[in-house]
């Protein structure tokens, strides 16, 4: 504290601190601009919208980030102790009102904008011709049920649940609608068709996450939660669990493929044949 004889040390520290802040800001901006590690390209229209909103947010936060950190660096350097008396000021109400309004407008505006994208994800009318697939999370695997040619899911009963015997859903095969229900550990969907996943969980909460879809939805025991999307591009991707579900959480994954219509139909036929040859 002892004011005057510390001025010299003050300059060095101010310089190092300001320099540090500038370098840190530049490096951080570089990492985000070059997208050092980033999501793979999205395969859905909604994914593009999410990316656009993310980009807007990056711009806004980026500007505030750079201005604040560099502003901090500037005052640290400029207003280091020079053995003078500091300016006596309790603030400035005009400035106060100005930046309150500006941030309110920017932040809340951005937030309101986001709701339009959100509405498209979760409030859109279900497509009547959607491909409906049940997704069931369990410790520590994903299971998928396709309704088969009849387009209807058969009855399930809790007491029939037996993952060891290949019946994690507890499908009651005595129900005619259940006879052609296909249960597989991989998720295949056709390209360019509306998909409706119905997420359920058998034991604890799991969460459905595919990076390329940009979608994440918890599968909650006791609830059936729909998740809708259209995949525009074929390819092989990975589905992972993103809600802590127990000791095997990190190995709870499943392959996720978007196939052409023909491939998809063929795969369904193959699975059905397999089911009927080995009921």
């Amino acid at each position: 504290m002892q004011t005057k004889n510390r001025c010299a040390g003050s300059t060095t520290t101010a310089f190092i601190l300001a320099f540090f802040l500038v370098v840190f800001t530049l490096v951080t901006v570089y990492l985000f601009v070059s997208k050092t590690w980033w999501f793979p390209e999205t395969i859905t229209p909604i994914g593009h919208e999410i990316d656009v909103q993310t980009q807007r947010t990056l711009w806004l936060t980026g500007i505030v980030f750079v201005l604040s950190q560099l502003g901090l660096a500037w005052v640290v350097w400029r207003y280091r102790n020079r053995g003078e008396r500091a300016r006596y000021s309790h603030g400035n109400n005009t400035l106060e009102v100005l930046w309150t309004l500006a941030t309110a407008l920017a932040f809340i505006g951005l937030g309101v904008l986001a709701q339009f994208t959100w509405a498209k994800i979760h409030l859109a009318e279900p497509e009547p011709d959607a491909v409906v697939i049940e997704v069931l999370g369990e410790q520590f695997a994903w299971n998928f049920r396709y309704p088969g040619p009849d387009g209807k899911f058969g009855r399930t009963r809790t007491e029939l649940i037996n993952s060891g015997a290949g019946n994690p859903f507890g499908i009651d095969r005595s129900d005619p609608a259940a006879a052609d229900d296909i249960v597989v550990p991989i998720l295949n969907v056709p390209v360019n068709r509306p998909i409706e996943l119905r997420l359920r969980a058998k034991d604890v909460i799991h969460s459905f996450f595919v990076r390329e879809l940009r979608l994440k939805q918890d599968a909650v025991p006791g609830l059936e939660i729909p998740l809708r999307f259209v995949a525009e591009r074929t390819g092989d991707f990975e589905l992972v669990c993103t809600e802590l579900c127990g000791m095997g959480h990190q190995r709870m994954r499943a392959p996720f493929s978007v196939k052409t219509a023909a491939e998809y139909e063929q795969w369904l036929r193959d699975e059905l044949a397999l089911l009927q040859s080995n009921p």
Partner: peptide, 24 residues
């Protein structure tokens, strides 16, 4: 909207340093 009071605080902190005689 929580971002607003948070931003106010940040700007006021920088405003406090502005014109000061900073002891490091």
């Amino acid at each position: 909207s929580i971002g607003v009071p948070s931003a106010i605080k940040t700007f006021n902190w920088i405003g406090t340093l502005w014109g000061g005689q900073i002891r490091f």
